[in-house]
Simulated assay, not measured.
Amino acid sequence: MVAQEFTVDLDKPLVFQVGHLGEQYQEWVHQPIVSKEGPRFFANNILEFLTRTKWFAVPLIWLPVVCWCLTMSIQMGHTLREVGLMMVFGIFIWTLIEYTLHRFLFHIKTKSYWANTCHYLLHGCHHKHPMDGLRLVFPPAATAILCVPFWNLVRLISTPSTTPALFGGGLLGYVMYDCTHYYLHHGQPTSDPAKNLKRYHLNHHFRIQNKGFGITSSLWDVVFGTLPPSKMAGKSS
C-alpha cells in the first residue's frame, strides 16, 4: 500500500504540521506564497506572539548595545581610530557569518519530523511566506541567546580590551543585515546599489534558491562560487 501524501492545512497553525511532510518538505517550503499576511504558527497565543517582531525593534534594542561595546573598548585605553578599525573588522567578519549561516544552516536539507519543524522555524517560513513583514527579522530574545556564544568566541580569539569593540562591530553588522533584509523585501529602491541588491535577493527567493546567499552584498558568493548565473542575477528590463 502506498502511503497517502500529507497535505498542510494553511488555515491551521503550521509549525507542528510541516514535519509530517517528510521528504516532500523541501519542495513544499520552496514554493512561495506571496502575501503580506503571515500564517499562524502556533495555537498558543504566547508562542505565536514571540514569533512576530517589528523590524524597528532590531536597531532600537541592539544599537545601544553596540554603543556600549565601543565605549567599553575606549574606556580600556583604545583610541577612536583603533576602535573604528576594530568595528569595521567586526562588520567584515559578520558578512562571512551571514553568508555561512544562510548557506549551510538556513538551507540545510531536512526530511525528518523534527528537522523539518526546526528548519521551518529557522528559515523555511521565510521562503514559504517571503513577504511576511513580522517574521523577516530575528526575534530579540533569540538574538540575545545567540550573543552569548558569539561573545565567548570573540573573547577567546582577542584581548579583553578589544573584545567589546570587535563584538560591537559584529553586532552592528547584524543590525545592518536585518534592516537591509527587511528593506529588500518591503522597500522600493529607485537606484543602485539598493535596486540591484533587491533584485539579487529576490532572485534567490523566486528563481534559483541554491545560489545568491549574500544579503548585504554578493562578496562571499563571488569568493565561494555561489554567484547566480549572470542572466539570472543581471538587470531585468
Rank of each mutant, 00 (worst) to 15 (best):
G38E: 14
W62A: 03
E37H: 10
V18I: 10
G38L: 13
D11Y: 06
R52Y: 04
Q31V: 03
E27A: 11
Q17G: 01
H30S: 04
I61E: 00
Q26P: 01
K54F: 13
T53E: 11
K36W: 11
R52W: 05
A57W: 10
A57D: 05
D11I: 01
S35V: 12
Q17Y: 02
W62L: 12
P39L: 10
H30T: 09
H20Y: 14
W55N: 07
L50Q: 08
F41R: 09
L50E: 06
L47P: 01
N44K: 04
L14C: 07
Q26Y: 05
N45E: 08
F56Y: 15
Q24T: 06
N45R: 14
T51V: 05
Q17M: 02
K36C: 06
L21F: 02
E27C: 04
R52N: 10
P64I: 10
F56K: 03
I46F: 15
T51Q: 03
V18Q: 02
T53P: 06
E48N: 13
E37K: 15
R52S: 04
L60H: 05
F16H: 00
E27H: 12
L10P: 00
T51M: 11
R52G: 03
V58R: 01
Q24C: 08
W62N: 07
S35G: 14
V34H: 11
K12E: 13
K54Q: 13
F41E: 10
F16T: 00
P59Q: 07
Y25C: 00
D11N: 10
L21V: 03
R52F: 03
V18M: 09
K36F: 15
E48D: 04
P32T: 11
L63M: 15
P13A: 07
L14P: 10
R40L: 05
H20I: 09
K54W: 13
P64Y: 03
L50W: 12
E23N: 11
Q17R: 09
F49L: 12
Y25H: 05
V34F: 12
I33S: 12
